[in-house]
Write a protein that binds this DNA or RNA. Structure first.
Lengths: 132, 132
DNA sequence: TCTTGACCTTCCAGTAACTGGAGGCCTTAT
DNA sequence: ATAAGGCCTCCAGTTACTGGAAGGTCAAGA
């Protein structure tokens, strides 16, 4: 299988697949002309990584997940721990964004949005929020 | 005012303040020895930027907000438009993270988390989610 | 056979917004 | 005089790609 076939069957961009080889996530064989030749195993790995990335796991976490996946003697506790830690990160981000959302949405509601210069949004940004 | 004073009163790291000068957000004066000399206006600008950043606005949006802030003839509609667009971005991110959270949390609940290798999390990652 | 177009390759640079560190001058206090 | 600490610049690294240039390869049609 050539790279563009792999791209269309995994949904990953060609560039991304090359990048994943670069950083050592996969190591596809090469044919005589220098083209990458992807095995089913490469394909599965890439699909696995793509799925993990879509759940927000970082590249290093993907590496760990792949290692655990290939380890027949793994303990599911290790996987769960990794996933829980990632869930914590997600929750932290959601909380942060939720906080931003609340403040911003409040300010937007307070803003007339007309051709006058008075603006509660700018007023808030300029106000003293005290970091001292 | 020297840079570390500004850092402690704005809550921004010294490195970040230098960076903001680098990219043209501020242009503090220099004293004879080459040290940056921050005016009250510089200080206010930095506080403004810091606040905008804490609401998740990107650097370019900060530049726009600062420009609007300094424009006495601005229309609040322009500020509101910018803020609304940013709110949309935030909502998009929250939705994406919420989706991840839901899936991941479901998988975590299904995982025994013991010393056995069976793991619904890995099973899901390895499963065919069909991008073809 | 030649050419054209779609592949494939590598390498370099850029993205967002900093952050860390090296090497070195300036200031202040002992 | 010296040591500590603040300031300076410049370079490199971070995350996870993405775009583009320059060039080799392959299959099909005229």
């Amino acid at each position: 299988m050539n790279i563009s076939d792999v791209a269309s069957s995994t949904g990953l961009p060609v560039k991304t697949i090359r990048y994943y080889e670069d950083i050592g996530l996969i190591a596809p064989a090469r044919s005589a002309n220098g083209y990458r030749q992807f095995s089913d195993s490469d394909l599965h790995k890439l699909a696995f990584i793509g799925r993990a990335r879509s759940l927000g796991f970082g590249i290093d976490a993907c590496r760990d997940l792949l290692r655990l996946y290939n380890d027949q003697k793994r303990a599911s506790a290790d996987v769960k721990k990794l996933a829980k830690s990632h869930l914590g990160e997600i929750d932290r981000k959601i909380a942060e964004l939720g906080q931003m959302r609340a403040t911003l949405s409040h300010l937007i509601d307070a803003c007339a949005g007309n051709d006058r210069p008075d603006c509660p949004i700018l007023a808030d940004l300029a106000a003293d929020h005290d970091h001292a």
